[in-house]
Design a binder for these strands. Sequence first.
DNA 1: CGCTATGTTGATCCATATCAATAAGTGTGG
DNA 2: CCACACTTATTGATATGGATCAACATAGCG
Lengths: 236, 236
Amino acid sequence: MIAGMPDSDHPDIRGLHLFAQMSDERFLALMRGSYVQNFPPQVDLITEGDPSDFLHVILSGVVELTSAWNGRETTMATVRPVSTFILAATIKDAPYLMSAKTLERSRIALIPSQDVRNVFDTDSEFARAIVTELAQCYRSVVKAQKDLKLRTSLERLANYLLRQQMLTGEGSQFALQLEKRKLASFLGMTPENLSRAFKGLQPYGVAVNGNQITVTDRDELLQFARPTPLIDDFSI
Amino acid sequence: MIAGMPDSDHPDIRGLHLFAQMSDERFLALMRGSYVQNFPPQVDLITEGDPSDFLHVILSGVVELTSAWNGRETTMATVRPVSTFILAATIKDAPYLMSAKTLERSRIALIPSQDVRNVFDTDSEFARAIVTELAQCYRSVVKAQKDLKLRTSLERLANYLLRQQMLTGEGSQFALQLEKRKLASFLGMTPENLSRAFKGLQPYGVAVNGNQITVTDRDELLQFARPTPLIDDFSI
DNA sequence: CGCTATGTTGATCCATATCAATAAGTGTGG
DNA sequence: CCACACTTATTGATATGGATCAACATAGCG
């Protein structure tokens, strides 16, 4: 078995809203049973349908969450540091609904689900923090579903680009954080269609060069994309 | 203003998992600030984007949750007694992401969101119950998203019918709980396409007469639909 | 009993998927 | 460091699922 978690990783995890309010004692108890591991790229961390043995916390790298059915596969989300994933399955002691694999070399903390449930049962501050986290997750998925049901793929891409521009600091140029084929799957389309969608946004002032996106006319793009906080604002 | 909630409604609400573990004292305090109202069909209860003033509990009738964007509208869910809706917005004190309207004459309890948040802050049992509820909601939406991204509309309909058959007691004949145009929107298609999808399921042993569905060959339908608990089982 | 909303059917259009070919990266081993 | 293999991205041609438009039927409902 792997050694416990190095103390040096504690601050990163402690910084998460989920663990911030917890007593030192309980936090250390959680950390004692946990461990941290470095994974190379393309490693399967979780397979959908498996029992949820560990709450995962990504400390560095990138993790992709996917689901599959009947031979088809889709990217549900990508997770970046520092955040937890598959919290709901841990809490409900239910099977994972998504698979997870590393896209880059990643440092992942694994906290035994049973320990998380134990703390949840005894520490009401922790329970409250979980509520906030889950409410946030829930609302994010509802927004994603609205995005899928109410928008065409061109509109989804346009709004995605605007959100990315926001996240990367409002500059007119920024880099895609995702391989295009993953982005296509995430947005619910094929890679070929994504290629054409980028072309379709040219008239609205979007230029693409590799993974570099330049928004030459933000107003034009905004007018086409019509973003709304009720779909595109991840902070509410 | 409307009078408070009749005591006769308390047991229904108390029976919800969300309120079951709470102390009598706190429960009564919540109920004192709440009220119950009977609404005719087609009444708008909630408009997306509005601040979440009340946690709603449907005691009888049917409520539809919809979202709109850019002139388009889609049915996100229908809610039946006895259950709460728009819990996440209440907890986060954030705007509603969906609109709600009655489809039939409905009896709805309205619990001031601020009261819910107050109890949430002081009653850790309640906070824990909310976690379970939200985790359930979250997983349901994830399943819905998988349904949308991984299946064609014909496959979604087939699996929907199998789920309905399950819910209505496994009989080979059952009634659709939803107007077909709402069902179409819920499944992410047009009414015309739904009409044709029903025809498309005939070869797999599905017969339709008005809102009466008869599954003449369940095995055939199962083989086509390929349901999986990771999408279609709402209890895990 | 008619009016209006819902459902069906047919014709056509459009968005997106699929298939196929090519180009451009990216990583690996010699 | 380059050659090779392999994956990813683009582009074109075509197919298809699903939307839209239009006409009609039907069923609730006042």
